[in-house]
Structures are given as structure tokens and as C-alpha cells.
């Protein structure tokens, strides 16, 4: 268990390092620099700015300094937001993404697992077909369509919520609902597939033969194993949900982490782009390790060997 965790964490750190290096390399390739797009400024001002941010140094010196900064959690200043640290920007926008991502995740699980389980327990019935059709529809409704449609219905027609923005206490509802519905469709599909595969296995027959009630069979024996594909999907999905969907934040104009990532990439804010990319990959890596551990605990056949 410990060596398993240690190797996974080391591997994860390597992934984060590679993400930082690639992000840096891509930004270096980009024509222009962080201060090129601004209004014309005298040569000595630009040289001063470059010197202040270390842009006059050779690339490997810059890269080494960035990596050292990330390793010591001494996050640098943003190039674009003058005088503001990357850590400060992430700390400010991540809670916003969290406030949307956590309810979205709960909605996705709360809708998806019952819907998939219902379909799997009553194969080829009306319930199964209905759940399958609803989840297929959900998979095919892109968030960029569903989000505006929900806003049109609940904000413009019914006036229940703000159309966009991040002002009132209930501004999380529509974005979370949009994300939750879409992810619930994937979760329902995975639950249905996983449960149907599990229900025909021998240990389920054994449980039934011992006289276990249907509820015990499903909840105590089957669902545990059937959730493995869902868990696998949840690792990256949770990281994506919590860092904010780029599209949803654009649709509902929410000042979350996704917004900063896009604008950082567009404005060649190297430090902010590297910081958000590293933060995002750290979350993915963290969730993947968590998923692996839970999986090994749920399924004795997997174990901590890989």
C-alpha cells in the first residue's frame, strides 16, 4: 500500500513537471511576448519590465527558476495582473469553481446512479428504455447548448435566477445544474453497463442462493463492484468539474479558474498559464490516485500491486 502510494505520487509529480515544461515551451514558441501586445512603450521601459520578470535571461534559466518556484510553492507574480501573485489569483477563483463544481458533482451522482441502476435492474422494460434514451440525450446535449437553454427558460422566461454573473447567493444553481445533468448522463450509462455485467456473475448467484434479499444483493454486493467504471470516470471528471468548465464559465460569466486559464493563454501570461495548468494537473493526478486507492479497497481482485 505505501510503496504503491509512493510510486503513484512520484509518477504524478513527474506528470506535473512535464506539464509545466510543455506549457513553458509552448508559450516560448508563441510569437511575441507577454508585454508585446500592450500599447507602444519606450524601449527602456520594456527592457526594465523584461528584467523585472527575468525575461531577459536565457530560456533555461527562466525555466529552472519557474520549476524552483513551483517546487517551493513560491508562486510568481502574474505578468498581466500587475502586482498580483499567481497563487493569489488561484486562491481567489478556485472557491468560485468549487462552489459550482461540488453541487454539480452531487447532482451528477444523485441523478446518474439511480437512473443507471434502474435501467440495469429492469432490463428491456419501459424504465430501461426511458433511462437509456434520457442518458443518450444528455450525452448529446453539449453544455454550450444546454446552458443557454436553461438560462433562457429559468432566467429570461421564469425570472427565477440571474441570467449570468456571480452576485447572488443562488447564482450557482444554473451552472451546476447544466454540468450536473451532462455528467449524470455519462454516469448513468456507466452504472447501467457496470451493474448489468456484475449482476450475472457467480458471487451474485451465491448471494441469492444464500437467501439474501434483492436489496442486499444489489446494495451490499453488486453496486460496490458496479461502481468501478463510474469511479474510473469520476477521477478526471471531478478534476474537470472542480476547476470549472471553460464553457460554463463563459456562458454564465463566472469568475472561476477556467476563465483565468483561457485569458492567461491568450495574453501569454506565462506564469499564470503555467500555474493554472500545474494546478489542474495536480488535481487530476490527486483524484486519479484517490480513485486507484478506493478501487483497490472496493475490489479485492485489483489490490495495490500495479
Amino acid at each position: 500500500m505505501l510503496s504503491f502510494l509512493a510510486s503513484r505520487i512520484l509518477q504524478g509529480l513527474a506528470v506535473i513537471l512535464v506539464v509545466i515544461v510543455i506549457t513553458f515551451a509552448l508559450m516560448k514558441f508563441a510569437p511575441g511576448g507577454p508585454f508585446q501586445s500592450e500599447r507602444a512603450m519606450p524601449e527602456y521601459v520594456r527592457a526594465n519590465l523584461d528584467a523585472q520578470y527575468g525575461l531577459d535571461k536565457p530560456w533555461y534559466v527562466q525555466l529552472a527558476r519557474h520549476i524552483k518556484n513551483f517546487a517551493t510553492f513560491d508562486l510568481p507574480l502574474s505578468y498581466r495582473y500587475k502586482g498580483r501573485g499567481v497563487g493569489e489569483i488561484i486562491a481567489e477563483s478556485f472557491p468560485v469553481s468549487l462552489a459550482i463544481g461540488v453541487p454539480a458533482l452531487l447532482i451528477a451522482l444523485g441523478l446518474g446512479i439511480p437512473m443507471g441502476a434502474l435501467a440495469a435492474l429492469k432490463p428491456n422494460t419501459f424504465e430501461d428504455r426511458a433511462a437509456t434514451i434520457v442518458s443518450t440525450l444528455g450525452v448529446c446535449l453539449p453544455s454550450m447548448v444546454l446552458g443557454p437553454v436553461l438560462a433562457l427558460l429559468f432566467s429570461l422566461k421564469l425570472h427565477w435566477f440571474n441570467v449570468a454573473g456571480w452576485y447572488d447567493a443562488d447564482d450557482w444553481v444554473l451552472p451546476s445544474l447544466t454540468l450536473g445533468i451532462i455528467y449524470s448522463a455519462y454516469i448513468a450509462r456507466l452504472t447501467r453497463g457496470g451493474l448489468r455485467e456484475t449482476l450475472v456473475q457467480d458471487f451474485i448467484r451465491t448471494a441469492r442462493a444464500k437467501g439474501a434479499s434483492e436489496a442486499t444483493v444489489v446494495f451490499r454486493h453488486a453496486l460496490k463492484l458496479a461502481c468501478l467504471p463510474v469511479l474510473n470516470f469520476l477521477g478526471p471528471a471531478a478534476a474537470g468539474l472542480l476547476t470549472g468548465s471553460f464553457v460554463i464559465e463563459t456562458v454564465f460569466q463566472i469568475p472561476g479558474l477556467g476563465q483565468h486559464f483561457i485569458s492567461a493563454a491568450m495574453h501569454q501570461d506565462y506564469t499564470l498559464a503555467m500555474g493554472t495548468a500545474a494546478f489542474y494537473s495536480a488535481l487530476i493526478v490527486g483524484f486519479n490516485i484517490l480513485v486507484d486507492v478506493i478501487q483497490a479497497m472496493l475490489n479485492p481482485r485489483i489490490g495495490f500491486n500495479s
Binding site: 510543455i22 508563441a30 489542474y280 494537473s281 487530476i284
Partner: peptide
């Protein structure tokens, strides 16, 4: 395996910008 853990959307965004 390692590439699976990459934040692809972020890379695609940077690539299109670059």
C-alpha cells in the same frame, strides 16, 4: 498512461493560441 493524466483541454487551448 502518463498522457491520460494530462490536462488536454488546457493544452489544446495553448496550442490554438500559439
Amino acid at each position: 498512461d502518463i498522457l491520460y493524466a494530462f490536462p488536454f483541454m488546457t493544452f489544446v487551448i495553448i496550442l490554438t493560441v500559439v
